[in-house]
Computed example of a mutant assay.
Amino acid sequence: MIRIGVFGANGRMGLALLEAATIKEQTQLTGAYVRSGSSLIGVNVNQINSAADKSVCFSDENTLESVDVLIDFTLPDGMRSHLKRAVEQSLPLVIGTTGLTADDMALLENAAKHIPIVFARNYSVGVNVLLNLVQTAATKFGDDLDIEIFEAHHRHKIDAPSGTALAIGESIADAKGWNHEEVAVYDRSQIETEKSQNEIGYSVLRGGDIVGEHTAYFATMGERLELTHKASSRMTFALGAIRAASWLQNKPVGLYDMQDVLDLK
C-alpha cells in the first residue's frame, strides 16, 4: 500500500486528488496539506469531500509525516517551496503545476538529481496518447500543411495557452524538427502577412466551468484532420496522477513524465 500526501489539498484539483487516492486500489491517503495558518487545519477531509478518507485531517504543509509519495498541483510559487521540502525529506514527487518558467524547469532538473520526480502538464491517459498521435500526423502530412492548436478551460485558469496545449505543440515541433519557441505564434493581431506553414498557431478560450478541451488541427488544401481530447471531470487527471505516484515509488532519481509512466516512449 502506497501512502499518498497531497499539497494544496483544499483546491479544486487537490480535492479530486484526495478522492482519487482514497478510491484507488493499492494507495492510501495519509496526508492532506494546506498552507500554514489555514482554518482547515485539523478539519476532517471527509467534511469537504465526502468521498475522501474520513480518517485523514488537513494538516500544515510544513509537517510531512507517514507518506511515501507527494503530489503537487499548486501554483508555481507553492511548487517551488514544496519541491524544496520533498528534496529535504527525500520524498518522491509528482508535479502537475503548469505555467512554469525556464528557471522553474531548471529547479526541477536539479531536484531530480536527488529524488525521483514525475512532471507532466497533463496526467490524462487520453492526452498522452494524443501527444503520440499528433507526432504521427505531423510527419505523415508532409510540409504542405497548416497547424493550429485550440484549447478551452474554465474561467479560473490563469496560464494561457495551457500547459497541455504547449505540450501538444512541442510534440509536433519535435516531430517536424522545429524549435518550438521559434515557430509558436500566440498573437496575430499585429501580423499583416498570410500564415506561414512553418508555424504553430495557438488559440485560447476561457469561460464557465470547462474542465479542459484541446484540439490539434492539421489542414491542407481539400482536407482537414482534427485530433481532439475533451475532459469532463478533474478525476481524469487525479486518477492519472495517482497512477504516476504508484509508478514512481522505488524508482531511481531522475526526471520522468507521463509518457514514461504509460510506457509510450
Rank of each mutant, 00 (worst) to 15 (best):
M1A: 10
F7G: 05
G8C: 07
G8H: 06
A21E: 03
I23A: 01
I23K: 13
L29H: 01
A32N: 02
Y33N: 08
S36K: 15
I41Y: 07
I41E: 09
V43A: 09
V45Q: 03
S50D: 09
E61Y: 13
L64V: 11
L64S: 04
E65N: 11
S66D: 15
D68C: 05
F73W: 13
F73R: 04
T74Y: 06
L75I: 12
D77E: 13
M79G: 06
L83A: 03
L83T: 04
K84N: 12
R85H: 11
V87S: 01
E88R: 10
V94M: 03
T97F: 00
T98S: 12
T101M: 07
A102H: 09
A106K: 13
A106E: 13
A112S: 13
K113M: 08
K113C: 03
H114E: 13
P116N: 02
V118D: 01
S124K: 01
G126L: 11
N128I: 00
V129M: 10
L130Y: 04
N132Q: 15
V134S: 09
K140D: 13
K140V: 15
K140P: 00
D144I: 05
L145A: 08
L145F: 09
L145C: 11
D146S: 14
H153W: 14
H156W: 13
K157M: 14
I158G: 08
S162L: 03
T164A: 15
G169P: 03
G169Y: 05
E170S: 11
I172M: 06
I172Y: 07
D174P: 00
D174C: 10
D174T: 14
N179M: 11
V183P: 03
A184P: 01
Q190P: 00
E194C: 07
K195Q: 10
N198P: 01
E199C: 05
I200S: 03
G201N: 02
S203Y: 05
L205Y: 15
G207K: 01
V211W: 02
V211P: 01
V211A: 04
T215S: 08
M221P: 07
M221V: 14
E223K: 12
E226Q: 12
H229C: 10
K230S: 14
R234K: 11
M235Q: 14
T236Y: 06
R243A: 14
S246C: 11
S246D: 11
L248V: 07
Q249W: 14
Q249D: 12
N250C: 05
V253E: 10
Y256R: 01
Q259G: 08
L264T: 05
